[in-house]
Design a protein around this nucleic acid. Structure first.
Ligand code: SF4
Ligand code: SF4
Lengths: 162, 162
DNA sequence: CGAAACAGGACTGAAATGGTCCGATTTAGG
DNA sequence: CCTAAATCGGACCATTTCAGTCCTGTTTCG
């Protein structure tokens, strides 16, 4: 139920990498793909879609590449992942990409579903990418791993503590 | 990314219905299936699995059926849905049903993923079914819809309000 | 003994997913 | 002006997952 598509994962990777670029700098798909060790053609598609979603800017031609359209603090997890998730809603009755459910007005599960769905969406759209991936030091050649730091997720209070 | 499998949905339906049974009462699969308008054979499988998960008890023979093994307040959303979700984790590196990810120790996305995943799991396992489906009046023949009441989900504070 | 229920495996069709390939267009640099 | 390298974007394919059906047992009430 929670699994992200590979495209989403690649999108998050890309946005993370774009996040620690110097201002005005750009990075090309082949470079990105090699750094993260992921299929270049697929990443290319992902980037196109990110552009269409307005999250990144692109420049064509040799020495072209991508850059963030706005800082990671202004991109939510939902923004980043939304374009790649076919089934973003819990059930057909609360999903944008489905023609709904004919039982919707005769289903005692509908209201709870809708409520939970709305809550989850709210969570994911109040989580900025900057929070999610606490952007860390520059990329070492071939390996982008960085020392562990507690993310802001871990500091979010659980509902039962509220 | 959030979509539940049909089995999960059916499981939630079933547990909801079992929830407003009188003590000692049981209900059979064909009856349940007809009430909710869902395929009986599939629901049968779901019930078997719920039994294996220890959430319900069954009795065989004619006039057999299912009943809750414990009250809805003692069953979490994750309990109910877990057995039916192949891919419960956000990514391969944090999923029980996958052999992990070879890049796990060289991926700057791993730690954020793990953190978010843990947080989401915690959310789903602190949400009891009783909270989720604020169990409502008995089932009218052929239609189980009931008047709307605010669920406890809607009263959960958003992180940004905490 | 027979009808009705649970138990459970085998199987199928359809759809989503992850990935590849190829041709077209743009553009910096020699 | 020409070429290499990059973004575009459609077509295509293999694999897996999903939802659903079917069929054969076994239990148990009346
Ligand atoms: S209305 Fe009920 S059955 Fe239809 S999708 Fe929503 S929850 Fe599932
Ligand atoms: S380690 Fe990185 S690449 Fe591997 S699954 Fe986790 S997030 Fe995806």
């Amino acid at each position: 139920m929670l699994k992200l598509s590979k495209k989403s994962e690649y999108a998050l990777m890309a946005l993370q990498s774009l996040g620690n670029l110097a201002a005005g700098e750009r990075i090309a798909v082949p470079m990105l793909a090699e750094q993260r060790g992921i299929p270049k053609d697929l990443l290319a598609k992902v980037m196109q879609q990110l552009k269409r979603a307005g999250l990144v800017h692109s420049s064509q031609g040799v020495s072209g590449g991508y850059a963030l359209a706005r800082p990671l603090t202004a991109i939510t997890f939902l923004d980043a992942v939304g374009p790649f998730e076919e089934a973003l809603g819990l059930a057909p009755c609360v999903d944008r990409n489905s023609e709904g459910c004919d039982r919707a007005d005769c289903c005692s599960l509908h209201d709870p579903m809708e409520a939970l769905n709305r809550w989850l969406m709210a969570q994911l759209s109040t989580l900025s990418l900057a929070e999610f991936v606490a952007a860390r030091p520059p990329v070492v050649h071939g390996c982008v791993k960085a020392p562990r730091q507690p993310t802001s997720m871990e500091r979010r209070p659980l509902p039962c503590e509220a």
